Simulated assay, not measured.
Amino acid sequence: MVVSHSTPPVTRKKARKSPAKTKPTPGAKQATESSDIDEDMSRESLIQQSATSVEDDMGEASLPRASTVPSFPPLPASAISSQSLKSETRRIPIPPHRMTPIKRDWVNIFSPLTEILGLQVRMNVQRRCVEIRTSKHTKEIGALQKGADFVKAFALGFDVNDAIALLRLDDLFIDSFEIHDVKTLHGDHLSRAIGRIAGQDGKTKFTIENASRTRIVLADTKIHIMGSFQNIKIARDAIVSLILGTPPGKVYAGLRTVCSRLKQRAL
């Protein structure tokens, strides 16, 4: 038996012809170079434009926007007259121990309120309060608040002549605090603290008032000071140091230095 092997036919790959390389002409070469240069320049211009736009956006975001200053024209006379027609009432309570002084000095109390501020005033004995109200003669908008501060100052214990300064000056205030706000004292320690503030025959209190140009009312454990903001701070610091146990002589020395500085600033 004869076995015959058959070999597959060999297929030859056809060789691909490579395209003939043609040398570019000088005109075409210049055209391609110019097109490349134009593309590069357009890319650079686009990059610069995007960078400038980003910088402008960042600059606008970082810089605050210019705001226009609002202008408020003065109110017409009709608006002011309409406000004055609307009456407002304020009720100031009076402590029981101040009812007798307010009855005694009632003429000196309601005269400034009616003549200077043009308010209507009455005393309600049953409710133990003073009621004040605006009228057609009230010309100032803050007259009601000034009148309430004046009556409240008298109710706290200030003299009438000292309280009238609240009506005439705009930079006067009243500050109130208690001894327990500074230091918790009881019994004899509290009595000695009150004695240090008042002094013998009120000498220490008068010295603080004259040095700081204020008025002080010492009502049991409550202390009321009337004056300007800076002067109230000077008097309050002196009183706080006395409550904490500082000798009066040291407080006097501190008040002298403060008074000398105030005189130099005034000059």
Rank of each mutant, 00 (worst) to 15 (best):
H137P: 02
L156Q: 03
A77G: 12
S111P: 04
P70W: 04
G187L: 01
R215K: 05
R65M: 15
G195F: 08
D220L: 04
S34Q: 11
L185T: 09
F177L: 11
H186G: 07
R236S: 08
Q126N: 14
D162Y: 01
D201L: 14
S87V: 05
Q120F: 02
E44G: 02
R43Q: 14
M41A: 15
L166H: 06
T184Q: 13
P9W: 09
T134K: 00
S241E: 15
A148R: 10
T138L: 00
P95Y: 01
S228Y: 04
K233R: 12
V3Y: 08
T134S: 12
K23C: 06
T22V: 10
R43F: 05
K222W: 03
M58R: 10
S212N: 04
G195A: 07
F158L: 02
R16T: 10
S84G: 06
M41Y: 12
T204E: 13
G59T: 08
N210G: 15
Q145Y: 01
T114F: 02
V125G: 09
P9A: 13
T7E: 08
S228E: 13
K205P: 06
S78Y: 00
H97C: 05
S4V: 13
D149F: 08
E33A: 07
S42K: 11
P96E: 07
A163Y: 02
R91H: 06
L113E: 01
A51M: 14
S67Y: 13
F206Y: 15
E60A: 13
R213K: 10
I92C: 00
Y252V: 11
E88W: 02
K13Y: 14
T184F: 05
G199P: 02
K103S: 11
H189F: 05
K263G: 08
V2T: 14
H224F: 15
F206V: 13
L113K: 04
V54I: 04
M58G: 06
G202K: 05
I132V: 12
N161L: 06
R192H: 13
K263Q: 08
Q145K: 09
P76S: 12
K21E: 09
Q83L: 03
A79F: 00
I141V: 05
A28G: 01
R65Q: 10
T52Y: 03
F110C: 02
T32L: 09
S67K: 12
R215Q: 13
G187C: 04
L167R: 02
T214Y: 02
I102C: 01
R127L: 10
S71R: 08
T134V: 03
G195M: 06
D149I: 03
D56V: 10
K136D: 07
L117T: 06
H180R: 15
L218N: 03
D149P: 04
T68P: 04
K13R: 14
I94K: 00
F72S: 07
K14R: 15
D181I: 05
A148G: 08
L85V: 02
Q48T: 09
I243E: 05
V3H: 03
T52L: 15
R192A: 07
P95I: 00
D175Y: 11
E178T: 12
K152H: 02
S260H: 11
I37Q: 14
T204I: 13
R122H: 10
S6W: 12
D149S: 13
E39R: 12
